[in-house]
Simulated assay, not measured.
Amino acid sequence: MTDRPDETVTERDLEVLAEQLGRTPRGVVGIAARCPAGHPLVVRTLPRLDDGTPFPTTFYLTGPSVVAAASTLEANGAMKEMTAALAEDEELAAAYRRAHEHYLAQREALGHVDEIDGISAGGMPVRVKCVHVVTAHSLAAGPGVNPMGDDAIARMEAQGLWRRDRCTCG
């Protein structure tokens, strides 16, 4: 992972997150990725929420335009295509398994939760179940860590759905 030197969450970040999510954000311990204007795109969340609920989604996609782009990819069948690619390409599958291990290590660094031990998110390590999760992981970790998230971002850009280098937050 490309370690972010400062993932500090400000009061303004929490306000923006509440607007983005339409609810009070839960378990946020860092802003794992921001748009070029500095708005949150991905939050880092605790593996157990304040109410005791296990929460496996360490990297949670929040930026409205990238969330919409991920939803469009899902609606257009990207998950099925990506999962098929994993079955056909052993190197890609191995890289995705490494992404799964990376995800688990990042969550474990925030605390151990028995109920979700060994379970990452988004279908890792054998399928792509959620484009939002793999995209969030890729944005948080940087290119080359999660190949399916990198693929999703490339698809978004190629289809004109979203670009990492432009703020479309509002």
Rank of each mutant, 00 (worst) to 15 (best):
84 A>L: 14
72 T>F: 01
118 G>S: 12
3 D>W: 03
61 L>P: 13
130 C>I: 07
76 N>L: 10
122 G>T: 08
165 D>W: 11
55 F>V: 06
16 V>I: 13
52 G>Y: 04
62 T>A: 13
55 F>M: 05
16 V>K: 07
31 I>W: 01
105 A>V: 07
73 L>H: 08
2 T>G: 04
87 A>V: 10
151 D>W: 14
34 R>P: 06
12 R>F: 08
28 V>N: 00
157 E>D: 14
149 G>V: 07
13 D>N: 01
126 V>L: 11
108 E>L: 14
146 N>G: 09
147 P>S: 06
12 R>E: 13
38 G>M: 11
40 P>W: 13
80 K>E: 12
90 E>C: 05
155 R>N: 07
62 T>S: 09
101 E>A: 14
8 T>P: 02
111 G>F: 04
153 I>P: 02
106 Q>C: 15
63 G>A: 04
3 D>C: 02
160 G>P: 12
106 Q>D: 14
139 L>A: 06
152 A>T: 06
155 R>F: 02
24 T>A: 14
127 R>S: 11
19 E>I: 10
132 H>L: 03
71 S>I: 00
145 V>M: 03
74 E>F: 15
33 A>M: 06
129 K>E: 11
115 E>F: 05
146 N>D: 15
73 L>M: 05
42 V>S: 01
11 E>Y: 01
129 K>M: 03
122 G>H: 09
56 P>R: 06
55 F>G: 00
31 I>D: 02
55 F>L: 05
160 G>H: 05
105 A>Y: 11
38 G>F: 15
100 H>D: 04
13 D>S: 02
22 G>P: 01
43 V>P: 00
29 V>H: 04
96 Y>D: 01
143 P>L: 05
157 E>M: 07
113 V>C: 04
89 D>E: 09
159 Q>P: 03
45 T>K: 08
108 E>G: 14
61 L>C: 14
19 E>L: 14
30 G>K: 06
47 P>K: 10
165 D>E: 14
35 C>M: 11
93 A>H: 10
114 D>F: 10
76 N>W: 04
21 L>D: 07
152 A>M: 09
30 G>C: 11
20 Q>R: 10
166 R>K: 06
145 V>L: 08
56 P>K: 10
157 E>S: 11
160 G>L: 09
39 H>C: 05
135 T>Y: 03
41 L>V: 05
168 T>E: 12
152 A>W: 15
67 V>F: 15
28 V>H: 02
68 A>E: 12
